[in-house]
Design a protein around this nucleic acid. Structure first.
Length: 323
DNA sequence: CGAGTTTGACCCGCGC
DNA sequence: GCGCGGGTCAAACTCG
């Protein structure tokens, strides 16, 4: 079973998809977290197992050597902790089912509106990752200035362009890049303008980086407030480079503040027209879902922050309805 | 001078 | 086998 078939986990707004910015160990935890049938500490080889939990007996002798007992125990404990977090989330969510709409729906709608609403920045970045089967393939959508004809997607990595082609289904040329940060990094990416929206760059990443990100994009702390207008702005590693809206991708905890209360979002939706196509909206939803999932596994503070944020929302909603 | 880009040629898989 | 189209190579070129 590959991650592409996971879809959303039952009861959760989470979809597991490929992510060029995630390291392998994180993908392991995401798979385990998103679907119990995908516990897989060894990647593709162990993924062939049809059994449920991580089971060392499902691994080859060589794989058993690689996966130490300590590592296995550590992952198991980590998964248990994450499962508990999920249970807490599920309990909280179940309390909200009688509502007209579930919190998650409000949240996703809000994320879409935020994307639409940040058009004043130099570049807007909203991402969608699209998991392929064995090789990591993910897709990133970057909205840029339509007058900017370059096919440059700033994602923190260093790329060397090795080719450009005009494809049949799109009049815009497709640029081919290889990761040049590490000499033997196998990751490639293709960048091409969307055929439907020339201001949208579509970057397709293939493979996984075998090195750490040279510099994770950072966001300004004031870009996110739970009260004010969210305006995610990226401060790239190079201060002289462009600002990019890369925010919830690089700081998911801050992105939690993007989730507004249902009432706030309803007001927001009433004021703003929807420009997004359904597919693009889904892309953004999946992006944020993935971001949240990855952060849930990667950052121990994120799970607590998520639970806290949901609790706050429930409390806030109760207060509003009481008033 | 080194690193990155451009661009025509070439390779290869696929459908007919 | 042939043509098509996507992907890659590599020499020439550009730029800092």
């Amino acid at each position: 079973m590959n991650t592409a078939s996971l879809g959303r986990s039952p009861g959760l707004p989470f979809a597991i998809e490929g992510n060029p910015f995630l390291d392998t160990s994180l993908d392991l935890k995401i798979n385990s977290f998103g679907n119990p049938e995908n516990h897989n500490p060894m990647g593709d080889a162990a993924r062939e197992d049809d059994d449920g939990d991580i089971r060392r007996q499902g691994l080859s002798p060589k794989q058993k050597d690689i996966v130490s007992v300590e590592e296995f125990n550590r992952i198991t404990a980590e998964n248990k902790k994450l499962t508990e977090m999920l249970c807490r989330y599920g309990d909280l969510q179940s309390q909200m089912v009688p509502r007209k709409r579930k919190l998650e729906e409000y949240e996703w709608d809000n994320v879409i509106k935020i994307c639409e609403n940040s058009a004043n920045s130099d570049e807007e970045l909203y991402l969608r990752t699209q998991e392929s089967t064995r090789t990591k393939v993910s897709r990133v959508y970057v909205q840029v200035d339509p007058s900017d004809m370059s096919l440059n997607v700033k994602d923190g990595y260093h790329w060397r362009k090795y080719g450009q082609k005009v494809t049949r289904d799109n009049p815009s040329p497709r640029a081919y890049f290889k990761c040049s940060f590490a000499p033997c990094c196998p990751v490639k990416k293709k960048v091409q303008r969307s055929v439907n929206n020339p201001s949208l760059l579509v970057a397709t990443y293939e493979g996984e980086h075998n090195h750490r990100s040279p510099a994770e994009p950072k966001i300004t702390s004031q870009s996110f407030t739970s009260k004010g207008q969210p305006n995610p702005v990226l401060v790239t590693p190079n201060p002289s480079s462009h600002k990019t809206n890369f925010a919830w991708y690089s700081n998911p905890i801050a992105a939690l503040d993007l989730f507004q209360s249902p009432r706030q979002i309803t007001n927001r939706l009433a004021k703003q027209p929807v420009h997004e196509t359904n597919s693009e909206a889904d892309s953004i939803k999946q992006l944020l879902v993935q971001q949240m999932v990855s952060s849930l596994t990667k950052d121990p503070n994120f799970a607590e922050a998520l639970v806290t944020k949901i609790s706050e929302r429930i409390f806030e909603q109760e207060i509003q309805e009481f008033v």
